[in-house]
Amino acid sequence: MSMDEDTKDGGSRRDFLYLTAAAFGAVGTGSVAWPFIHQMNPAADTKALSTIEVDLAPIEQGQAITVMWQGKPVFIRHRTAKEIEEARTVDVSSLRDSQTDEERVEKPEWLIMVGVCTHLGCIPLGQKTGDVKGDYDGWFCPCHGSHYDSSGRIRKGPAPKNLPVPPYAFVSDTKIKIG
């Protein structure tokens, strides 16, 4: 760490050299690090499966199906008029995560959302006819007792947020593309 050989202007030129070398070292290390970090992000084949198409035609009113999308269950529910009615008459300002039902659906009879409880990641019950549907005619998470309504909004229990709606679009009247 001791460099005693010094001349008047040689010193500043040397400092400049050292600084440039240090800068190159930093840039080099940084650019080498990036590939090793980025390799852990989803790979191309994983990303290729990040959109799916679902045919809605076979789902009767009042029925629900669960499909896998990006490794998570997506709830698709063909809602009855009663369920839509319940979802739309709630006073939005009283909700923990205030959202209108209209904001959560493209078409009122089709509710599509990611079926992962926003509390700690369990899968709520309510998809099958015999399931407990909670106090609000929607879904009930058995892990810590979160109740979701017929629009998938959190009404009671520890979960902080509504069940999230994935990006999706109707490619035809009976077909949607998720992702």
Partner: peptide, 11 residues
């Protein structure tokens, strides 16, 4: 980078 380091070494 090599050019710079070589100069550093020489100096």
């Amino acid at each position: 980078f090599f050019g710079i380091m070589y100069a550093v070494k020489k100096k």
